[in-house]
Design a protein around this nucleic acid. Structure first.
Lengths: 138, 138
DNA sequence: TAAATGATTGCAACTTTGTTGCAAAATAAA
DNA sequence: TTTATTTTGCAACAAAGTTGCAATCATTTA
């Protein structure tokens, strides 16, 4: 378990530190996306705010975690499933935000539809965020 | 021209003030989405930061403007085309963010595809954000 | 296994972004 | 024109995020 987490870090050429292990564990045990504030709370302020910012940034750069677009100004992070390669995210799944409980899910099994763009535009990534009620709140 | 803008404000039961007219004009003359900072710059700091925040908030509430989800933590605003009714946005179009120049476009003519969600989930809104290169940068 | 190297952390200070209360000013109504 | 209501700008604050730097920790090498 703990070894598996250390493995992921090593595979991404990251040194294995307490904060990285703990934060990565949080993501693996959560079935929803996490905000910076969630992580700060759930680690019971064991780590400095700055460390959490930097860890998340590193994880995004390494393709361990991806950010989820939201209409409000909050930033959400979620595990990339098949461990995207550095700078090459290919998390082609839909995100679902529940209006009631606020939970954000990665709907891994629903693939992003192809979206047409006008002449001259080139698509590199397509993000789909669905909002409404999740199965627990409906 | 100016009258048309005043009309929109009156139609939405808003009193016609300098800041509201000027900011609404900015949106109408821009073919892309605007961030709070853009507006602050483009009004050459004629209005207080707070006024701009409050004006944008009011416009969103009235359905004159809508927010666009982004992967970074920035909030973008764009004109609602057919002047959504209060609280009832129905801007079912795709948003495109150019990775090179950073411009965000509302692709008015491209409709959002229907996205399946798992059993028990209820869809209320679907946001699609495509990123890549726009026609000017490709 | 211990010392040396290099990366990461925590702290402090700071910037940027967004919010709130309130008096003054502007708009709309009478 | 006067009155009532709304909006604005200021000040002060709160939250979110960033940067430099010394101390600490992880990894490498001998």
């Amino acid at each position: 378990m703990k070894n598996e987490i250390a493995e992921i870090l090593k595979r991404n050429q990251l040194s294995v530190t307490d904060s990285r292990q703990k934060i990565l564990e949080l993501f693996r045990h959560s079935n929803s996306a996490l905000a910076h504030a969630d992580i700060e709370k759930q680690t019971s302020e064991q780590f400095d705010r700055v460390t959490i910012y930097r860890t998340l940034q590193t994880f995004v750069e390494k393709g361990i975690v991806h950010t989820i677009p939201t209409t409000d100004n909050s930033v959400l992070y979620a595990l990339c499933k098949d461990n995207c390669s550095e700078g090459h995210h290919h998390d082609d799944h839909v995100h679902f935000i529940c209006d009631d409980c606020g939970t954000t899910y990665c709907l891994e099994h629903i693939t992003i539809p192809k979206v047409e763009v006008p002449q001259g535009f080139i698509t590199k990534q397509t993000d789909v965020v669905v909002s409404g009620q999740c199965d627990k709140c409906s």
